[in-house]
């Protein structure tokens, strides 16, 4: 589902995600949702974007050692780019499987780390790319088509 060339999204806003800030985790995604609410999307689209942002933000907080989330916007598309400088994902195919997790007890106590984050991101994205290698961080590019 590659968007047409004339729909190349434009940069809208960049957020910083703090490392290991378990109490504050999720703030960025709420800010993304509020930002896009002002633009005027349907509740269903907003929900999909917010779920992708939230799961990605949790991953950056829990595993990525902090990073950033950027929002790009075209008339019929939202692109989220989430990057960290963490340890990377050694086996992406495994990480995409529902239920597979390397979460610590602290992460699970927060209600995350059940191995559903990346599958949830995939389920709510119309296009998803993940670039990762051990020691070089992870970059996730997710696009949600606006209906």
């Amino acid at each position: 589902m590659t968007p047409p060339q004339d729909q190349e999204p434009e940069f809208l806003h960049a957020f910083t995600i703090a490392a290991n800030d378990f109490a504050g985790a999720g703030q960025v995604s709420i800010a993304v949702k509020n930002l896009l609410k002002e633009v005027g999307f349907s509740a269903q689209c907003l929900r999909r974007v917010a779920i992708v942002a939230f799961e990605a933000e949790m991953n950056v907080v829990m595993y990525g050692g902090g990073g950033g989330l950027s929002v790009y916007l075209a008339p019929t598309l939202v692109r989220l780019v989430v990057e960290d400088q963490g340890p990377g994902i050694p086996d992406l195919d495994l990480a995409m499987q529902e239920g597979w997790s390397t979460a610590t007890p602290e992460m699970r106590e927060m209600g995350f780390g059940a191995g559903m984050g990346l599958p949830n991101i995939k389920r709510n994205s119309d296009r998803l790319e993940i670039h990762t290698s051990p020691g070089r961080g992870t970059k996730l590019v997710a696009e949600i088509i606006l209906t």
Partner: peptide, 14 residues
């Protein structure tokens, strides 16, 4: 669960 993530999850999920 009774942490801030419950409230943020609720906000995100409607």
């Amino acid at each position: 669960l009774a942490n801030p993530q419950v409230v943020r999850t609720a906000e995100v999920a409607g």
